[in-house]
Nucleic acid binder design. Structure first.
Length: 506
RNA sequence: GGUCCUGUGACCGAGUGGCUAGGUAGAGCUCUGCAAAAGCUUCCACAGCGGUUCGAAUCCGCUCGGGACCUCCA
């Protein structure tokens, strides 16, 4: 079998993945800032890395997946006073900062559950690791790569760049930036006069009196800078050097660049070996984001309550939609695209469920029925699942292969293909492999909720009545039963063999 | 302005220089009391202009268009 290759942002090429410790993988993914409700854009990284996580498990790795919750307020510079955005909003909403943070954390967890993502192994919060961050900052100061100014601490980017460039780790390595080119392009920021250079970034910010979120530190009361939490928590839970660091492409600079610098000073290591970045979801070609005023919250997606939405879109539809593209490409949102995804998923899922219901004995395999060509084709398509996933997690191609199997499955079900056209081993492999990839790796699931056992009994009664009506050629009655069930989400289908099957939609 | 990415058929989207991915929609057919579903068949592409090559959607150059980052950001 081919080995896993991943695109490493650091080297800008695909590399064969090997873990630092054989059999084990450490993965850190930048989590959400819980100062507001999650939007469609958030779905991309967490679904992408959920699949990465699941696939690595499939490959047999024992993996520790760390994803932080940023619940300590970072400061904003909207041309005004530096302000904790979390505490700012809390005042408006008359909520305690932690109450607000808890609310949005809960909403985030709810959305992630809807998407059927597996919870990370550790989900550390920034506020729960203030001590670790302070310790790290102290170390950076000791080593001479940070300085204190008016109760704030800044990272000395110039000095870092000068010293670490010699070690092959200049500042800007990940994002492809050259520090000297940057000096003029940095925008005017608050408290700029405190910094030695514009490119320096805050490790610790002095809290103004009105600031609600604040902690005691050697430099006075304040709060941590934007980047230090990830360095501190990744070191704590994954070690000084670990395998994978993931996040959205918009975090490459400055966030990840700063993480690398902080960790390099403290640990003298290169932090993460593979940097994986997902691309953005766009809407009308534009990134979804607060600043563009085009945010669709996940709760709005699920309920269809946003003016731009023609209908609600279920979590699985969105998950499938995301899986249909490659994670490093932009993905353009649109009603038409989502509706296509919804229908495609339905077709795939129904074929999948039908497949799982088969017993191998149903196929009645024997030499006469064997269709060698078809058998080879199925085997080839199944083998491609692994090949494509190994090629930087190309879920789009795997889905394409799955859709080539759908007509085969449906043809067996509808008896267009002779039972037993496939060898029983191929058929078993088809069932197993589809189950593994559809459910275990892609994380797709049925969206029917609750207990349908009673309803199923009721439907069987109606089906029986309809059968009797049909036998008497009483089509008025039989059509009425079918027609009235449809708006209730129960679709009856007359099968070839005279049976009536049904499918439920939520 | 700097750095980088990108432009594929009605829409979304994959794509290793040679084998017209796939999904949805459209058209036709089969099955069917009708319907739905399913199956089969089918139409519609590689922004433009040059270049390299036996051969380019894929490599190179230019032009035009879109986007990301340089500020919190998934």
């Amino acid at each position: 079998m081919s080995s896993l290759k991943v695109y490493n942002s650091l080297t800008r090429q695909k590399e064969i993945f090997t873990s630092l410790v054989p059999g084990y993988v450490g993965m850190y993914v930048c989590g959400p800032t819980v100062s507001g409700e999650s939007h469609l854009g958030h779905a991309r990284p967490y679904i992408t890395f959920d699949v990465v996580y699941r696939y690595l498990q499939y490959l047999g790795y024992k993996i520790r997946y760390v994803r932080n919750i940023t619940d300590a307020g970072h400061f904003e510079e909207e041309g005004r006073e530096a302000e904790d955005k979390i505490s700012k909003k809390a005042v408006i909403e008359k909520l305690e900062p932690m109450e607000l943070v808890q609310k949005y954390t809960n909403l985030f967890h709810w959305a992630m559950e809807q998407f059927n993502t597996i919870a990370p192994s550790i989900e550390p919060t920034a506020t729960g690791h203030i001590v670790e961050q302070i310790v790290m900052i102290e170390k950076i100061i000791e080593d001479g790569y940070a300085y204190v100014a008016n109760g704030s601490v800044y990272f000395d980017v110039e000095k870092y760049n000068t010293d670490f460039a010699k070690k092959g780790m200049p500042y800007g390595l990940l994002s492809g930036r050259v520090l000297d080119d940057q000096l003029d392009t940095t925008r005017e920021l608050d408290n700029q006069e405190e910094k030695k250079n514009k490119s320096d970034f805050a490790l610790w910010k002095n809290a103004p009196p009105e600031h609600i979120m604040r902690w005691k530190s050697p430099w006075g009361e304040g709060f941590p800078g934007w980047h230090i939490e990830c360095s501190a928590m990744s070191t704590k839970y994954l070690g000084e050097e670990f395998d994978i660091h993931g996040g959205g492409m918009d975090l490459v600079f400055p966030h990840h660049e700063c993480e690398i610098a902080q960790s390099a000073v403290c640990n003298h290591k290169r932090m993460a070996r593979y940097w994986l970045h997902n691309n953005m979801i766009t809407i009308n070609g534009r990134k979804m984001g607060k600043s563009y005023n085009n945010v669709i919250r996940l709760s709005e997606m699920f309920s269809g309550s946003h003016p731009i939405l023609e209908q609600p879109y279920s979590p699985m539809t969105i998950r499938f939609f995301i899986l249909q593209s490659h994670y490093r490409s932009t993905l353009d949102f649109g009603n038409e695209a989502l509706q296509s995804a919804e229908k495609g998923l339905k077709r795939l899922w129904e074929a999948y469920e039908a497949l799982q219901k088969f017993r191998v004995t149903d196929t009645a395999f024997n030499e006469e029925n064997l269709d060698r060509e078809l058998d080879d084709k199925v085997q080839k398509l199944l083998a491609e699942f692994d090949t494509f996933m190994n090629d930087d997690f190309n879920t789009a191609k795997v889905l394409a292969s799955m859709f080539e199997l759908v007509p085969v499955i449906n043809s067996i079900k509808d008896k267009h293909i002779t039972a037993g056209a496939l060898t029983s081993s191929t058929f078993t492999l088809l069932q197993q492999k589809m189950k593994t990839f559809v459910e275990d790796i892609f994380g797709l699931k049925s969206e029917l909720q609750g207990d349908y056992s009673k309803l199923e009994g009721v439907i069987q009664v109606l089906i029986e009545l309809r059968k009797q009506a049909k036998a008497k050629k009483d089509y008025v009655t039989s059509d009425a039963i079918r027609k009235q069930l449809l708006p209730l989400g129960i679709a009856l289908k007359d099968e070839k063999d005279g049976n009536i099957s049904y499918s439920l939609t939520s």
